[in-house]
Simulated scan of single mutants.
Amino acid sequence: MKLRKIMISTLIIALLSGTAVYAADAVVQKLRVWVNKKEVDDGGILVDGKSYLSLKQLNEKLDGIFLVDDSTKRVSIYKPNVHMVTRRDDKMFSDVPKGVKVKFNVFSMIDSLKVDISAFKVTIDDPYGESTWIDGRDNGDKDFPDVGKENFNFLTDDLAYSFDSTGRYIIRFWMKPAGESSYQVVSEKVINSK
């Protein structure tokens, strides 16, 4: 009986040791990821030649709609085409002098939207990250696009905005997927103040 216990214990130890050695054989390396010439924090890892990137990092850098379904372990990524034009006095612009107050609007053309949304908004961030709401709509508004509509245009109301600092002001177009509680950035446009 004692011999049997010793053999079983030896067999279990051998199996566990073999498993630990096998797991240690996996080659794991840190992966540096660059997006638009800037390195992403905690970029990713490379395991046995396969790249693994964080969904959070991808979502923040790729300007798309990421939907995660924990129950089915499925991630759906949607990348609508959203083109924005900044206009003042019906003329396009992308540069403004520092310290000038400009009355402008944003014209957006949206196409290839393959997911239903319940709201969208347009914001501007100053060079220090302070965000200002420009305009937006939700599915209760009469001019909100119909459910399933893939293509639509949107013109914001005029905004009188002071470009008090030198730097990049970022216009962002946000969408809230139907059934979700938060907005996701789907497009960005830069206004430079000098």
Rank of each mutant, 00 (worst) to 15 (best):
R87T: 09
V190M: 07
K5G: 00
R87Y: 13
V122P: 01
N139T: 06
K149W: 08
I171R: 04
I170G: 00
V28K: 14
D41M: 10
K101T: 15
P97N: 15
G148L: 11
F144G: 02
K50E: 11
K98W: 04
W34D: 05
K114V: 01
K114H: 10
L46R: 07
A119D: 07
N105H: 15
S17C: 13
I65L: 14
L53Q: 09
S51W: 02
L3D: 09
S182N: 10
W174G: 01
A26Q: 10
L62A: 14
G64Y: 08
D41L: 12
T156G: 02
V190Q: 10
D125W: 04
K194C: 00
D90E: 15
L11H: 02
V122D: 03
D158K: 09
G44C: 07
G136F: 04
V28C: 07
I134W: 05
V28R: 11
A160R: 13
I8M: 11
V185F: 02
F173L: 07
G64E: 11
K30D: 15
P80M: 06
S182A: 09
I110K: 02
T123Q: 09
S9A: 14
I12W: 04
D63F: 12
F107V: 05
K79V: 01
F163A: 01
D63R: 13
L155V: 07
K142R: 14
S162T: 14
A119V: 06
K50N: 12
D42W: 10
Y161N: 02
Y183G: 02
P80Y: 09
N36G: 10
L53A: 09
K189E: 07
S181H: 10
D90P: 00
D157M: 11
V82R: 06
S193E: 10
H83C: 00
P97Y: 14
K176V: 03
M1R: 10
E150F: 04
R137W: 07
N81V: 08
L15N: 10
T86M: 06
L58Q: 02
S76D: 15
Y161C: 01
D141M: 11
V115L: 03
T166C: 00
V75N: 08
D146C: 00
E39C: 01
I77Y: 05
